[in-house]
Simulated assay, not measured.
Amino acid sequence: MKNYTLKVQEVRKETNDTVTICFKQPGLKKIKYLSGQYLTLQFRINGRRYIRPYSFSSTPGIDSTLDVTVKRVPGGIVSNYINDVVKVEDVIEVQEPLGDFVFELDESLNSVVFWGVGSGITPLFSMIKDLLLNHSLINVYLVYGNRSNSSVIFKDQLEKLKINYSKRFKIYNFYSKEEFFNEDSHNYRGRIDSGFVKSLISNIEYPSRHYICGPIGLKNTVKESLINLGENINNVFSEDFELIKNPEDFKEIKDQEIYLNFAGIESKISIKSGNSVLEEALEVGLELPYSCQTGNCSTCKGTLKSGQLKMIGLDKPRNDLKDNEFLLCCSYPLTNNVCIEI
């Protein structure tokens, strides 16, 4: 895993609770990334290290800076720190870009539909700019849900793109709490629902592809609606920022004590039922490597030397892991003789 030290070139206020941090590209070795990927930022706040992944809102080949956009989360230590404290000229350590939520060109595609809510627009915005500028034969649709017009991230930039690419780019805005509402054919009250999915799909050009980024409710609504309409699930992609935990999966999980060998030092850690190995290790001050915390990367991978572990919440199978390799962000001990090596 490569680490870089980047300088903040600009801090841009997007909404009352969202900022974009624009990093200056290194002078000699430029950081390469793909639209839709994420950058993992590292901070030390009140003596503790915090690591958080944030999707690029910049687009390679279009934006000169490396941009990540961060929405304030109530009680969120890092998101509040970024919104309140980070300033121009600050130097921040980051990990190399990761993520497979990216656009792969298919010459037969006629349409790409992006589905987002709130800050889920971030990776979608990066891909939208790429598609509009570099793939002139593809029609682009954005279905974007927010509380109100004032909470729309990238509002001005999206409006400019809609004007500049009026024949290829359409935006459908959903507002759940908007009080002052000018209705037109592309503004809707409430939330994105299956009825709208059906209506839109009947009017787009096929073949098509879909990218979803937002809360689990949005993903389930869009995915289920598309499948019911006969859409091939292989043409539907989603970005996952949280592990989906089914309570049924935790019935056999109990409090356990494990041994963790990290950097040659062995530590005994108490794992509370329902908490992952990574969560408890960080709580006791072990600065383990990690990034996405959703089982989509391999940064927190450990090797099981004894005992039994169970991975819970993975959105898709990880066929790249060996039988004794586990992602600690979603791993839970089943026995009290667990020993893990990193």
Rank of each mutant, 00 (worst) to 15 (best):
S208W: 15
S208T: 01
Y211H: 07
Y211L: 09
Y211A: 07
I212T: 06
I212R: 01
P215C: 03
I216K: 05
I216V: 13
L218M: 06
L218C: 01
L218W: 00
K219A: 14
N220M: 13
N220K: 15
T221F: 06
T221P: 07
T221D: 02
V222P: 07
K223I: 15
I227M: 08
L229P: 11
G230T: 05
G230P: 05
N232S: 13
N232V: 10
N234L: 10
N234W: 09
N234A: 15
N235I: 00
N235E: 14
N235L: 11
V236E: 14
V236A: 05
V236L: 11
S238P: 03
E239W: 00
E239Q: 06
D240F: 09
D240K: 02
F241N: 02
F241E: 02
L243N: 04
K245W: 01
K245S: 05
K245L: 15
K245Q: 07
K245T: 09
N246L: 10
P247K: 10
P247Y: 01
E248N: 13
F250M: 12
K251D: 11
K251E: 10
E252A: 04
I253C: 05
K254G: 00
K254W: 00
K254T: 00
D255V: 03
D255F: 07
D255C: 08
Q256S: 10
Q256E: 02
E257F: 04
I258H: 02
I258L: 11
I258Y: 07
Y259D: 08
Y259C: 11
F262S: 00
A263C: 08
G264N: 12
I265S: 09
I265A: 13
I265W: 10
I265Q: 14
E266Y: 02
E266T: 14
K268I: 06
I271G: 09
K272Q: 03
K272R: 10
S273I: 01
S273M: 06
G274N: 07
G274L: 09
S276L: 09
V277M: 11
L278H: 06
L278A: 00
E280M: 13
E280V: 02
A281T: 03
